[in-house]
Design a protein around this nucleic acid. Structure first.
Lengths: 136, 136
DNA sequence: TTCTAATTAAGAATCATTACGATTTACATT
DNA sequence: AATGTAAATCGTAATGATTCTTAATTAGAA
């Protein structure tokens, strides 16, 4: 997901263009990795000393609900990153050191179609954790 | 995992047999599903009105570290259940209504052996969520 | 420019989880 | 059975992430 596309989605849904939203989205655009609400706040308070948690969380929730960001849970904290643009469904390798991700094209659900008859599948989670080549 | 096996592991590691541990383990033995710390506390305070969070969390941590319980994160809360006895690696379908689980024999990592060269894989998570046949 | 609804700031409240000092308990030893 | 001691527990306070509340500010339309 790139910045213009994100703004297009926001405008379509009647959300206003504010400086806080701009900076949040810019931070996610620059860094291709998962960030926590605290990560964001720490960086943003340099430019906006009055930035509050509420603003961060409210906008993160908005962005996730619009499909601009995706989130996952790592060691008890919510982490957010830009929604991938890939048009095909995929999963992620997540580096536990730097937080960068690598797309994994395989989806285990492809092989599970008929393995769970009578079970109504709502969603699934498949993530691989470890160290990326840069962090070893 | 059954009760005698759990106690065997605890004794081997020098842990004492207390009434609180007994009740916690009994609750997990009866119910083949994920429970939160609060779930446990609510039930246990009927028998032990003085049961404290500290006791619950401390024992849960002990049991997980000894491989008696396993845990996962569901909607922001830690959930615990008895470690499966299956001798082969597997994953879980988790019912979002009743919390019961069903073992899924397939592991996507089997197919990913060489797909991530140079990536040092530490662990992985694969879970399927939905409604079990009983809850539809 | 003015108006209005959306957005934000500031801080309090909430929820899950962890920590701490004092007390109690399991159990090995006498 | 009584005793000693480390482990376990209790009651409560602290912490950290997240959400809520109210008043003030701001973006974008009229």
């Amino acid at each position: 997901m790139n910045l213009p596309k994100a703004w297009e989605i926001l405008k379509e849904n009647g959300f206003k263009e504010t400086s806080k939203r701009q900076q949040i989205l810019e931070l996610f655009s620059e860094d291709d990795r998962y960030l926590t609400a605290r990560d964001l706040l720490d960086v943003m308070q340099k430019d906006y000393p009055s930035m509050s948690y509420d603003t961060v969380y409210r906008n993160l929730a908005t962005f996730v609900s619009l499909g601009i960001l995706e989130e996952t849970e790592l060691s008890g904290e919510r982490h957010f990153r830009m929604q991938c643009e890939s048009d095909h469904h995929h999963h992620h390798f997540i580096c536990l050191d730097c937080g960068k991700i690598k797309e994994v094209p395989l989806c285990p659900m492809d092989l599970l179609g008929a393995a769970l008859p009578a079970y109504q599948i709502a969603n699934h989670k498949f993530e691989i954790y470890g160290k990326c080549p840069d962090c070893q």
